Simulated assay, not measured.
Amino acid sequence: MRRLLAAIALITSMSAWTALPASAAAPGGGSGDGKNFDVYVKNLVRIKGSGAKGGKPNIPVNFDPPHCWYQPQYTYAEMRQWAERIRFAWMHQGPEDQKPAHDWYEDILEQIRPHAAETGKIFWFLTDDGTPAGWDCYMSTDPFWIYVGPRPPAIPNDKIIDPTDLALIARANLTLPDPVIRINPPGGRSFVGLETWVGVQRQAPRDVIAFVPGFPGLFARIVARPTKVLIDVHGAALEEPPHVLAGGCPTYRRGMDVSNGCWVKYKRASLGSPYQLTVTQTWDVTTNVAGVNLPPGSVSSSTTVMIDEIQSNVTR
């Protein structure tokens, strides 16, 4: 039935039928690409915030945000108009379509008639996140519209979009900057047995907001804050394990005490082939939605360090 309605809706969008107001047409329109037809409605969720800009979203392994969901779409009057538009196109396909179109239309009216006195976008349509997983979810979920009412329930995994879902969607859209590494001594060259300071540029918190415009209750905000740093020397021989501060790795300043920074002390010279050093920065992620725990983010950057032997001259 969904594929049949999709084809009919596509034909509707290509016809000269213009008597209905614009609200009768679902936001999906009908471009003929097999997806953007009237039965399919465009995703209304919007994303904004400092953490939603630039780069690729930082999505942890095994994190599975919602891929398709029901969103508020039509009032009672708009739902009738949508059904009328589908019926009109269907009945004009041929004589054999007259009865199926009529029966389908009457069935829709019977389902929505008890809600004629209710206001607001009480009929919700299925949409997806625009990914292959979203399309699979959309095609395997029935029905493609439901009555939700003025106060949507907050039931886990019911596919009715709510703040919990929006918090997960916001997390799936979080981008994080790569760590900016500053080595001291400068130039990425240090010496055996001395502290090679590793500074990681301090980053400001980043936020992502996921919301449905026009629906104040459909809103979630997440905030990511950098919390800790891991230094990996990729198997190089060390005199001591990397020294890392819980609050991060400040850039070296003249006179700085070794207890106030992050450093690595190499045991052997790199012998012309630099050591690789990788910094992984972890970001904790919180949300304003009660009861939702979000996975942290983790981003890494690498640099190279040349380690020389300290040479000394002895005069007799």
Rank of each mutant, 00 (worst) to 15 (best):
L166A: 08
I231E: 00
A133D: 15
P205Q: 04
C249D: 11
I161D: 02
A210I: 11
H92G: 01
E110Q: 13
A133T: 12
N36A: 00
R151T: 15
V212M: 00
V233P: 03
F144L: 12
M256N: 02
H92R: 15
Q71N: 02
V279T: 11
H234Q: 11
A290Q: 15
G149M: 07
V285N: 01
V264I: 15
F191T: 13
G149H: 08
I8H: 05
A237D: 09
A167F: 04
C262D: 11
C68W: 00
V314S: 09
I47D: 04
Y266W: 13
D142W: 02
D33M: 07
S31Y: 07
Q98S: 12
Q201R: 09
W197T: 08
R253C: 05
S31M: 05
D103E: 15
D162M: 11
V233H: 11
K228Q: 14
F211K: 03
D308H: 08
M79D: 09
C68D: 01
P72Y: 09
A170L: 04
R206E: 02
I209W: 01
G247M: 13
S300M: 12
R316S: 03
H243F: 14
F123L: 12
E84I: 00
L4N: 03
E78V: 04
R151F: 11
Y266L: 08
P152M: 12
R171V: 12
V208P: 02
A77F: 09
P163A: 14
D308M: 03
P95E: 14
V279W: 02
S13P: 02
T75Q: 00
P114E: 06
N184Y: 15
A7S: 08
P250H: 03
W69S: 01
F123Y: 14
A290V: 11
V305H: 03
T131G: 10
N260T: 00
N288R: 08
R225N: 04
G214Y: 06
L166R: 03
H243Q: 13
C68Q: 07
L5T: 01
V244S: 07
H67F: 07
E239F: 04
W263S: 11
Y40M: 02
W69A: 00
G255E: 09
C68Y: 05
K159I: 04
I122C: 04
W124C: 10
V299W: 09
W104N: 00
N173L: 04
L294V: 08
P156L: 10
I222P: 00
D308V: 07
T196N: 14
V233F: 12
S50C: 06
V180M: 09
W90L: 12
R202H: 15
A16R: 08
L168I: 05
A89C: 06
G297D: 05
P216M: 05
W104L: 12
Q71G: 05
N288F: 07
F144H: 04
V180Y: 03
P163H: 14
D284T: 15
N313W: 10
N36R: 06
V292C: 13
F215I: 15
V299Y: 01
I307Y: 07
A19Y: 00
M139D: 12
P100R: 04
Y70C: 09
S259L: 05
P241E: 02
D38G: 02
S23Q: 10
